[in-house]
Amino acid sequence: MKRKEKAEGRPNHERWLITYADLITLLLIFFVVMYSISMVDAKKFEQVAASLMSALTGRGPEILDYPGPSIIEGMSGEQLQMETIRQQLQEYIDQNNLGSNIQLYQQERGLVISLSDTVLFESGRAELTPQAQDIMRKVGVSLAPINNYIRIEGHTDNLPINNAQFPSNWELSAMRATNVLRFLVREAGLNPARLSESGYGEYRPIADNNSEAGRALNRRVDIVIMKSEHAVVEPH
């Protein structure tokens, strides 16, 4: 007696749903990753997601129909550039044991390279020492690739100085900042149009001037790499 041939199974017309579900899952992961690595406007994000979904599914318009700038507008390389500079200089500081004399930190206005006067000048003088020139060459190499506005700010402690060259700490702090600026232009080739200097004397201390340790912290030159939004108008 012949066995009955096995009946063919009914075709599954819904297999495409599995592939479709996988595609939707991958799209969701993609957008979550994109959102996590950039500051994206929520409304624009939803519009882009809807547009891409429409293009893939064939339903609705396939192009973005909202006016305005690109979604990648906020993905500026400025923060990456500043972080690269910070890492380069921090490596140099660590390799040369300069951690007690050079500090790197972020302010609202930008990245600050704060250099103690002991690695730049002799006491009461404004000429860069040979060690200071080596340091400034390294700083100049790191600053050369960027186009940000750069301020160079001289500071002193509150001990008075009064001689033929420097009647007060105003002149000393200003001349120190000027000499740093001139070196960066002359030796590092930085564009002078994006550099400026200021001398603040003893009037912007970061530590107590009642101790030698505090006064040492106040005697410094700060090189400030300004964020682009502060290129014209600086915060007070």
Rank of each mutant, 00 (worst) to 15 (best):
P11C: 09
H13K: 12
T19V: 09
Y20M: 10
Y20V: 02
L23G: 15
T25L: 14
L27F: 11
F31K: 14
Y35S: 06
I37F: 14
I37Y: 10
M39S: 09
M39G: 08
D41M: 11
A42M: 14
F45L: 12
E46L: 15
A49P: 01
A49C: 09
M53T: 11
S54G: 11
L56C: 04
R59L: 09
R59P: 00
G60Y: 03
I63F: 11
I63W: 06
I63K: 10
L64K: 05
P69N: 06
I71C: 04
I72M: 13
E73I: 12
G74H: 01
G74S: 02
G74T: 02
M75T: 05
Q79V: 12
L80A: 13
L80S: 12
T84V: 06
I85A: 03
R86A: 07
Q88I: 06
L89H: 03
S100P: 00
I102K: 02
Q107S: 13
E108P: 03
E108V: 13
R109T: 09
L111D: 05
L115A: 04
D117Q: 10
T118P: 01
V119A: 11
E122H: 01
S123P: 10
S123C: 03
G124A: 11
G124L: 13
A126F: 04
V141Y: 10
V141E: 12
A144E: 07
A144F: 07
N147Y: 12
R151P: 15
R151C: 15
I152V: 08
T156F: 01
T156R: 04
D157A: 10
N158S: 15
P160H: 05
P160Y: 06
P160A: 10
A164S: 06
Q165I: 04
F166Y: 09
P167L: 05
E171M: 11
E171Q: 15
S173V: 00
S173F: 00
A174K: 11
R176L: 00
A177W: 02
A177H: 05
F183L: 07
L184W: 02
V185D: 03
E187N: 13
E187S: 13
A188M: 08
L190R: 04
R194T: 07
S198I: 11
G199I: 00
Y200F: 15
Y200E: 04
I206Y: 12
A207L: 06
D208N: 15
G214P: 01
R215N: 12
R215I: 12
A216M: 13
R220E: 00
V221Q: 10
D222R: 12
I225T: 03
S228K: 05
S228D: 08
E229V: 09
H230R: 08
